[in-house]
Amino acid sequence: MSRRRFPWYLITGLLVGLTAALVYTWLIAPVKYSGTSPASLTLAERDRYRSMIALAYASNGDLGRALSRLELLGDVDPSAALAEQAQRYQVGGLPYQEVRAIALLSSAISARGIDFLQTAAAATVTAGIPGFRETQTATYAISAGTATQLAIIKPSSTPLITFTPLPTSTPEPTLGAPFSLKTMEQVCDPEEPLLMRVFVSDASSKGVTGVKVIVTWADGSDSFFTGMYPEINRGYADFRMQEDVEYSLQAGDAGEVIGPITAGKCSYADGSPYWGGWRVYVYQP
C-alpha cells in the first residue's frame, strides 16, 4: 500500500512565484504616486507646506485662504498641529520668523474657534484657492461669543478668489509700550516643579501671541515665544528652571527686565520639600 505524499513542490512553486512578484512590485517596480494631495506628503514635507501656509498668512492676513490651504493637509485639529509644529521648530532652532508665523496662525485659528467638521453632510465649500479642480466639503462653525454662525462658501465654477485680507482678532505684538511686570507669584505644584510660567497680555488683558521671551542667567540665556500653548492661553509660554539658579526675564526686546527669579522650596503635607515654580504676568501698559 503506497501513501500519497503531500505535494510540497506545489507550495514551493507558489512561494517562488509570490516572492519573485513581491520583490518586483515592492523593490524593482514599486507603485509611483503622482497627483497626490498634500495630505499624503511625508511629515517633513507636510511641515514645509504648513510652514508656507503660515508664512503666507503672516504676509497677507487672509485667514480664510490659510484655512482652505490647511484643510488640504487633512489635519484633524489644524490649530494643534500648527502649535505642535511651532514647538518642534523652536526646539530645532528654526528661524524666528517661521516659528512666530506658525504660532500666530495657530493662535488665530483657535481664537476664532473654527472647527473643521469635514463631513459630506455639511455644506459644500469650494476651497478658496485658485486653480482647484475639485470641491472640498467642510463646514466652518465660527463661534462668536455665545452665537454660532455657519459660514458657507458657495461652490463656484470659476476658480476665482477675492483677495480680501481679513482682520484678525488675535492680538499680535505691536510697537507699543514695552512689556512690564504686572505681578508674579510663587507656585507650589508638585506636578510641575521648577516651572516658570509666563503670561503676556496687552492693555486689555488679552494674551499676546508671538512675543519673544528672553530668560538669562549667570552663564547663559534662552529665548522662546508665547503662543505655543493656545489651549492654556494665547500669551502663555513656560521655561524649566534649574535649582539654585537666579534668572531674569524680559518680554520683547525692549521689555522690562524682571528678576531675579529663583525657584523656591515648597513642602508636602508631610513636610518633605520639593521645588516650586513661578507665575509671571507681564503686560503692555
Binding site: G13, L14, L15, G17, A20, A21, Y24, V31
Partner: peptide, 15 residues
Amino acid sequence: ICILIGLIAGLIYGW
C-alpha cells in the same frame, strides 16, 4: 502553474 499563480497573486498584492 503554481509559480505563475504565485506571480499573479504577488503582482496583484504588491501593486
